[in-house]
């Protein structure tokens, strides 16, 4: 492994930052509420909320995965105190614009909001997480998981498996 400063799964993913069965009216409400939660818990400062919304308008973050669609809203590190991942599985999908084609809307059923501070230390984990999201079976399992604890376990298990194969590649 690299230096001790490299972010590990547990540094970024927290059980209390995984929401299941949550309902938002639309994308704006989802982003505002989720970013607000990161502010409330001290991970980010209040302007983070508007920064996330502005970034989403300029650069949509929904990924056109083959199965369930996931959005990965994030913004630069300016208003981030500590890095965190806030993950939400939605009761009802909301419309996001697609990162690949902003004219296309996607029905997003999971939102993986990143608050990122240490860009240099986060590459491995970020790449692993996105690779995990690329696995349709994983997103299906998260979609069907009974609660947020199980979602956490699924993410942890696959991130660990994936980082092992990526290390020894």
């Amino acid at each position: 492994m690299m230096g001790s400063g490299v972010l590990q799964f547990k540094d970024l993913v927290k059980e209390d930052l995984i929401l299941s069965g949550i309902t938002y009216l639309d994308k704006e409400e989802a982003l505002r509420e989720m970013a607000g939660m990161l502010v409330e818990k001290g991970y980010c400062r209040p302007p983070f909320i508007d920064a996330i919304l502005a970034r989403e308008r300029a650069h949509p973050s929904a990924l056109p995965m083959p199965g369930h669609k996931i959005a990965i809203p994030h913004t630069d590190a300016t208003y981030v105190n500590r890095s965190a991942l806030l993950f939400a599985r939605l009761e009802k999908p909301v419309e996001f614009r697609s990162m690949g084609d902003p004219n296309e809307t996607l029905e997003v059923s999971m939102i993986s909001m990143f608050a990122l501070k240490e860009k240099k230390l986060i590459g491995d984990l970020l790449e692993t997480l996105i690779t995990v999201y690329q696995d349709e079976a994983v997103l299906n399992a998260i979609y069907d998981a009974p609660d947020s604890i199980e979602i956490y376990r699924i993410l942890q298990k696959h991130v660990q498996e994936k980082s092992k194969t990526m290390d020894t590649r």
């Binding site: 994030h74 913004t75 590459g123 970020l126 790449e127 996105i130």
Partner: peptide, 18 residues
């Protein structure tokens, strides 16, 4: 390039490099 040069482009750059 990506919107913020923090998350998306990091992943893309690493994949391409590998």
């Amino acid at each position: 390039a990506c919107g913020t040069a923090i998350a998306t482009s990091t992943v893309v750059a690493r994949k391409i490099e590998e």
